[in-house]
Every structure is written in structure tokens, then in C-alpha cells.
């Protein structure tokens, strides 16, 4: 038998294809792999019944294992959170090999870091951030803490919709993974790193880290630096108490108002006023100059 020669690239492709789950007997067909993480892999699939593309997350774990419990929890949490900023779940099921999977809306778009490659406006970045806060605040209102907020877990859809993704280690009120460190360093609250109990303020910390990342860290305007510093306070009690409070402070900055997190000097206040009403000030100044010139020429003529 002549064996087909496979280059290293084709080998990589086939090795990936070989690990795709078998959906025989189910209404879904895998199209391609979207991503792979510790808990499972996410595939682009086709819902054969409705003829629409979906995203399917398949557990890496065997039935009954911890990973499967987490995937199940994630699906249930997403099903609870009906919000434009949170991906809806359509279905949950089991493969022939016993692995759990859930089906969700397929989001076409880019991750926040990819999207921001073409965005320079600070105001637009902050607008995205406020919408992330909206979704997170909604989850908090339903007793869910995300616990892994970071730029890679935020997606911007084709039509500008902002979605908070990957609720795999989210925690509902009363549940939790004490003694296990889960999350992403650099965006994780100190109490989360110490595997202590966490609440919504752990997400406020992560949001502060995302804000700092968005604004370019130390290069951020002082009020924004102060907002992220307050959100990222080591003590949870020193942070904004809710994602909404954090979002509101950012919105105040965006509107050109003073922010809660920063007491500004007279010079800063004057500068902010001048920036906010720059055009109006220029126009009034132009009018006054005209008037002075008019008075001068009128005097000279008479």
C-alpha cells in the first residue's frame, strides 16, 4: 500500500482533527476548532436541525470528574444570565464517549486585544470597558462572580457588541473553590491568589486591572490611574463596592466630570474644565477678541 506523505503542517492539522469529538447521532457537526483550554475545547459547529453555526464547548474530563462538574456549572450559569453582554446557551448534552458538552451562540468578532489593535481613541476604549462592567454588574446582581476577567476573555462582535466570555471558573453565591487558585495572574485579586473566599469585589479588582491595561498602565491620565488603583486596592473593602460604581466613575471621567477616586487640585480642575469646554471657550474668546478689535478700530476711526 502506498502511504500518503504528510508534511509537518498537515500532520499538525490531522492531529487536531483526530482529537475532535464524535457527534454521531447528535444534531451537531464540527466545522473547526476555535480554541482549547484546561477545561475543554471550543469548536465551531453546525446545528443540522436549524442550519445555523454554533459554538460547542466539550469537556476534557471523563464523566463525573471535576472538569465535567465545572463545565456543567458554566453552562447553568450562562443559562441564568440573559444579558446582551453574555453569550446565550442553547443546549447541553453528552457525546457517545460520555463527555459533556454545551452549545452556545457563535460569536463572530475579535478578542479585545485584537480589536484594540485598530483603536486609538481613549473614549472608545472606555466605552467598551463600561459595557464590560454592565455585563459583570448584571452577573453580580444574579449572585455570579466571573473570577477570570481579562482582555482575552472579552470579545467584540462584528456589530460592536461587547461580550464577556469564559465563565468556566465563575462562582455562584454559596459555592466556591476554596484552597484552589484559579484565575490569571496579573488580573487576579490578591485574596483569589491566596485561595481565600472571594466575592464581587474580586471581579472589581480584575476590572481595575483590565482598565489599567486598556489605558496603557502608567501612561494613563491621572484620574483614570486613580480609578484603576482604587479598583485594585489590596483590601477588598477599599475598592469600589460594585462594578457599577467603578463604571460610573469611568463614565464621569469620559464626560469630563470629576471622578470619585481622585481629588483634583485647582490647576487640574481648571485644566479639565478647559479641555471639556475647549471649543466653547475658543468661540467665546474669539467673540471677545472681535469685540476688542471692533472697539479699537472704532476708537481709532473716531
Amino acid at each position: 500500500m502506498t502511504v500518503t506523505f504528510l508534511s509537518d503542517d498537515v500532520m499538525s492539522r490531522l492531529q487536531a482533527v483526530a482529537t475532535w469529538p464524535n457527534f454521531d447521532g447528535l444534531r451537531y457537526t464540527i466545522i473547526d476548532e476555535i480554541g482549547r483550554g484546561g477545561m475543554g475545547a471550543v469548536y465551531r459547529g453546525l446545528d443540522d436541525v436549524l442550519g445555523r453555526e454554533v459554538a460547542i464547548k466539550v469537556s476534557n474530563g471523563v464523566p463525573g470528574a471535576e472538569l465535567e462538574r465545572r463545565l456543567n456549572d458554566e453552562a447553568r450559569i450562562l443559562a441564568t444570565l440573559e444579558h446582551p453582554g453574555i453569550v446565550p446557551v442553547h443546549d447541553v448534552g453528552r457525546l457517545a464517549d460520555g463527555r459533556l458538552f454545551y452549545v452556545m451562540k457563535r460569536v463572530r468578532g475579535a478578542t479585545l486585544p485584537e480589536h484594540l489593535a485598530g483603536v486609538t481613541s481613549l473614549s472608545e476604549k472606555l466605552g467598551i470597558f463600561e459595557r464590560v462592567c454592565d455585563a459583570v454588574n448584571f452577573a453580580h446582581a444574579h449572585g455570579v462572580v466571573h473570577r477570570d476577567l481579562k482582555p482575552d476573555n472579552i470579545m467584540i462582535g462584528e456589530f460592536g457588541e461587547v461580550l464577556v466570555m469564559d465563565w468556566g471558573i465563575a462562582q455562584t453565591a454559596g459555592s466556591g473553590d476554596r484552597d484552589i487558585v484559579l484565575g490569571t495572574r496579573g488580573f487576579m485579586a490578591p485574596e483569589q491568589e491566596r485561595a481565600e473566599s472571594t466575592d464581587a469585589r474580586a471581579d472589581v479588582y480584575s476590572l481595575g486591572a483590565v482598565l489599567s491595561w486598556l489605558c496603557g498602565g502608567s501612561g494613563a491620565p491621572r484620574p483614570l490611574g486613580a480609578i484603576s488603583a482604587r479598583a485594585m486596592a489590596a483590601e477588598p473593602s477599599s475598592r469600589y463596592s460594585t462594578a457599577l460604581a467603578l463604571s460610573s466613575d469611568v463614565a464621569r471621567f469620559r464626560a469630563g466630570h470629576a471622578v470619585d477616586a481622585h481629588r483634583e487640585s485647582l490647576l487640574e480642575r481648571t485644566g479639565r474644565f478647559a479641555r471639556t469646554y475647549r471649543t466653547a471657550i475658543i468661540l467665546v474668546a474669539a467673540y471677545l477678541v472681535m469685540r476688542i478689535l471692533a472697539a479699537y478700530f472704532s476708537g481709532a476711526r473716531s
Binding site: 502506498t2 502511504v3 500518503t4
Partner: peptide
């Protein structure tokens, strides 16, 4: 080799 045979 295994995959090459399987493709064939």
C-alpha cells in the same frame, strides 16, 4: 506513518 496509511 499511521496517519498516512489512514488517509490512503
Amino acid at each position: 506513518s499511521l496517519f498516512g496509511r489512514a488517509v490512503t
